[in-house]
Design a protein around this nucleic acid. Structure first.
Length: 460
DNA sequence: TTTTGAGTTGTTCGA
DNA sequence: GTCGAACAACTCAAA
C-alpha cells in the first residue's frame, strides 16, 4: 500500500475544480479531512450564521465525496497539531490544501512547512502575481482591476477526480451533529433554511438561476426588491463553487465580473495588512470621535431605528443571513455616519449574522464606508436613508416585505413615515412610537455632526 | 525624481 | 423640476 495523501478542506468545500483534491487523488490513496479549529482570535471565530452554513456544507461535501468512493474525516482541534497527529497515525507525508490568506491561515501554513503542498483556487489570481509597476501591492481598486484583467480569464475549471481511493486505515472521526453547529432553542435558522441551499449543488443551481437574468445585472443589481444580484457570496465564501467556475459560468457582464474582482482585491488587502479587519487602514482615523451608543447599536442591529430602509435591511440580515449589497452600504453609512458608532461594531455584527461573512470582504466594505480604508469613500458622502429608499425602492416593495407594520402606508410616505399626515398614518394603522419607532436620530443634524467630526479628523 | 490624472456605489444648495 | 458646482485634500499608479 502506498502512503496516503491528506486533503485538508477549509473554505473550499467542493470536489470539482479543487486542485488539492485532484493532486492527492492523482498521487495515491487519500484521506479527506475537515478540522473544526478555533485558530482565529476569539472575535473572529466563525459566527453563528456561518456555523449553520458550515454544517450543511460539510454534509453536502461528505455526500459528494462518497459518490467518488471517499469519506470525509471530521476532526476537531488545533489544525496543525491535528494534521501532524494524523500524519503520524497514517504514515502520510503530504498534506494538500488550497492556499488561504487569513492571518491565522497563513500562520498555520507556515507552521506545517514542507509537509504542506499548497494549491490555488480561492482567488482568480494569486495575490503575489498582482503587483504595481514598482512591485508593491495595489491599494486602489481600479488599477488593480485593470491589472487583474491581464490575468483573465482564469484557467478552465477542472472536473472532479473520476475515483477516489480511500486510505483504508483512518482513525475514527467526529460526527457532524456532535459539533452542534446548528442552533437549538431557539432554532433561529428556520427562515434562513428557506432562502438557501448550502453545498456545491446549491451553488451551481444558484449560478444557473443567476445566468438566466445576468444580462439585467447592471440595472437590477441596485434594486433590493428584485432578484438582481447573483447571491453567490456564501457559496463562494465556503468554496462550494470556485471563482473560476463562476467566471466561466456567467455571461461576460463587466459590472458583475468586477464584483468578483473585489473579492480578489479584499484578499490582497488582507494579505498585505494582516490586521486589516481590526485597525484603521488610515491611522489618522484612530482619533475619530466615535460615540459609545449601546442603545443606538441595538436599534440598528434589530432594525428599530425608525428609518424604514435601514430597518428593512437589518431585518433581512437577521432573518436570512444575508443583505442586499446596496442596503449594506445604506445600513453601514447609517451606523457610522448617522450614529457615529465605530465601524468595527458593525463589522462584528455582520460577522456574526452573515452567511457569507468573509474577513477580507467584510473589513474592506466597512473601512470603505467609514473612509478609513485604502480606497475609501469621500467623507462627505453620507447616504440619506430617505432618498436612498426613494431611489432604490421607489415602490416600497422591499420595505413592506421586511417591515410589514408599514405595509399599508402609501409609497409617498413609506420611506419617511414621520412626515406622513396623521390621517394617513391612522388609515395605515401606524402609530409612531408604538407600532413602529420614531427616528432615533434626525438625519439632517446627524449629517452635520458627522461632517464636523470628519473635519476635526483632518485638522488633527 | 517629478508630474499628471484619477479615485465603486452621494447629497445639498442655489441658479 | 433640472442642472452644475461644491463638498478637501491626499495618495496612488504610471509615465
Amino acid at each position: 500500500m502506498s502512503t496516503p495523501h491528506i486533503v485538508w478542506f477549509r473554505q473550499d468545500l467542493r470536489v470539482s475544480d479543487q486542485a488539492a483534491l485532484a493532486a492527492a487523488a492523482a498521487a495515491g490513496p487519500v484521506i479527506p479531512v475537515y478540522i473544526l479549529d478555533d485558530a482565529a482570535p476569539e472575535h473572529w471565530r466563525m459566527g453563528a450564521a456561518s456555523r449553520w452554513w458550515l454544517h450543511h456544507s460539510l454534509a453536502s461535501l461528505s455526500k459528494a465525496l462518497e459518490k467518488y468512493g471517499g469519506t470525509l474525516l471530521l476532526l476537531k482541534g488545533d489544525a496543525v497539531a491535528t494534521l501532524k497527529n494524523l500524519m503520524a497515525a497514517t504514515g502520510a507525508t503530504t498534506v494538500h490544501a488550497l492556499e488561504h490568506f487569513e492571518p491565522w491561515a497563513q500562520r498555520q501554513q507556515a507552521a506545517l512547512g514542507g509537509a504542506l503542498t499548497l494549491h490555488q483556487g480561492l482567488s482568480l489570481a494569486h495575490p503575489t502575481a498582482m503587483r504595481t509597476g514598482s512591485g508593491t501591492s495595489f491599494k486602489v481598486f481600479t488599477p488593480f482591476w485593470r491589472a487583474l484583467q491581464m490575468h483573465m480569464p482564469p484557467s478552465l475549471p477542472k472536473p472532479p477526480p473520476k475515483k477516489l481511493h480511500m486510505f483504508p486505515d483512518v482513525p475514527a472521526g467526529d460526527s457532524l451533529y456532535r459539533w452542534k453547529l446548528l442552533p437549538e432553542n431557539p432554532d433561529w435558522a428556520t427562515p434562513i433554511k428557506e432562502h438557501w441551499s448550502p453545498g456545491s449543488a446549491g451553488a451551481h443551481a444558484q449560478l444557473n438561476a443567476f445566468v438566466d437574468h445576468a444580462e439585467n445585472y447592471s440595472d437590477a443589481r441596485n434594486t433590493p426588491s428584485v432578484k438582481g444580484t447573483s447571491k453567490l457570496s456564501p457559496h463562494l465564501h465556503f468554496g462550494e463553487i470556485s471563482p473560476a467556475e463562476v467566471w466561466h459560468g456567467v455571461p461576460s457582464v463587466e459590472p458583475y465580473l468586477r464584483q468578483l474582482g473585489w473579492r480578489d482585491f479584499s484578499c490582497n488587502l488582507l494579505l498585505a495588512s494582516p490586521d486589516f479587519a481590526d485597525v484603521n487602514w488610515k491611522s489618522n482615523f484612530d482619533s475619530f470621535p466615535w460615540v459609545d451608543d449601546k442603545a443606538g447599536l441595538k436599534a440598528w442591529q434589530y432594525g428599530t431605528t425608525g428609518y424604514p430602509i435601514v430597518d428593512a435591511g437589518m431585518r433581512e440580515l437577521y432573518a436570512t443571513g444575508w443583505m442586499h449589497n446596496r442596503i449594506r452600504m445604506i445600513t453601514a453609512s447609517f451606523l457610522i455616519k448617522d450614529l457615529m458608532i465605530d465601524w468595527r461594531a458593525g463589522e462584528a455584527w455582520f460577522w456574526d449574522t452573515l452567511v457569507d461573512a468573509s474577513l477580507g470582504n467584510n473589513a474592506a466594505g466597512w473601512q470603505w464606508v467609514a473612509g478609513s480604508g485604502a480606497d475609501a469613500s469621500p467623507y462627505y458622502r453620507i447616504f440619506n436613508p430617505v432618498s436612498q429608499g426613494e431611489k432604490f425602492d421607489a415602490n416600497g416593495i422591499y420595505v413592506r416585505r421586511w417591515v410589514p407594520e408599514l405595509a399599508k402606508l402609501p409609497n409617498a410616505h413609506i420611506h419617511a413615515p414621520w412626515l406622513a399626515p396623521k390621517n394617513v398614518l391612522d388609515y395605515a394603522g401606524v402609530e409612531l412610537g408604538k407600532t413602529y419607532p420614531k427616528p432615533i436620530v434626525n438625519h439632517d443634524t446627524a449629517r452635520l455632526r458627522a461632517l464636523a467630526a470628519y473635519k476635526s479628523l483632518k485638522a488633527a
